[in-house]
Computed example of a mutant assay.
Amino acid sequence: MFKKILVAALVASSFGAAPLIASAQQRAIVITQPPPPPREEQMPRARHGKEWAPGHWAYRHGEYVWVRGHWVGARRGMHWVPDRWVERDGRWELVAGHWARGRDRDGDGVPNRFDRRPNNPNRS
């Protein structure tokens, strides 16, 4: 009886672990050729309840392709961190866009609650 329970527990736990393993092994895009400079896009007028995800270069089928900016549904208390390419030891890796806690309207890395000028368009 104990062996049946043990086998059932092992089988059940293996099903629960499969999605975690699959999600942890998502393909990271690493390339030796740097991406082209970002294209200039005009951000459309702000939409209530939406946040702008700017365009970025993606790497598909052996070449860079431009992905246009788009609106994403806003999340309370969070801000959108755009997709970006990061160089590490001569290799370029795409860091996917994601939601982060806190607000940083001007993108200077200082959350609005600590920023003396949270809407400074001339940040450096």
Rank of each mutant, 00 (worst) to 15 (best):
residue 26 Q to V: 11
residue 46 A to C: 06
residue 118 P to E: 07
residue 93 E to M: 11
residue 124 S to E: 14
residue 74 A to H: 08
residue 82 P to M: 08
residue 40 E to T: 05
residue 61 H to K: 15
residue 83 D to I: 09
residue 62 G to Q: 10
residue 122 N to C: 09
residue 12 A to T: 01
residue 79 H to G: 01
residue 31 I to E: 10
residue 100 A to M: 08
residue 67 V to H: 03
residue 87 E to V: 10
residue 119 N to K: 13
residue 44 P to I: 00
residue 105 R to D: 12
residue 56 H to F: 14
residue 104 D to C: 04
residue 4 K to L: 10
residue 93 E to D: 01
residue 45 R to S: 13
residue 58 A to K: 00
residue 37 P to D: 15
residue 52 W to V: 01
residue 109 G to T: 02
residue 98 H to W: 05
residue 74 A to I: 06
residue 71 W to F: 07
residue 32 T to M: 15
residue 63 E to S: 13
residue 45 R to W: 09
residue 109 G to V: 05
residue 9 A to D: 00
residue 100 A to S: 11
residue 84 R to A: 15
residue 75 R to H: 12
residue 6 L to D: 00
residue 39 R to L: 12
residue 22 A to Y: 02
residue 4 K to R: 12
residue 68 R to V: 11
residue 49 G to W: 08
residue 44 P to D: 00
residue 52 W to P: 03
residue 26 Q to E: 13
residue 114 F to K: 14
residue 3 K to M: 02
residue 88 R to I: 09
residue 22 A to Q: 02
residue 25 Q to T: 11
residue 124 S to L: 14
residue 53 A to G: 01
residue 70 H to D: 06
residue 8 A to S: 07
residue 21 I to C: 07
residue 86 V to M: 13
residue 15 F to S: 02
residue 97 G to Y: 06
residue 62 G to S: 07
residue 106 D to N: 12
residue 97 G to I: 09
residue 85 W to N: 03
residue 22 A to I: 05
residue 12 A to C: 04
residue 109 G to C: 04
residue 95 V to I: 14
residue 58 A to Y: 00
residue 26 Q to D: 11
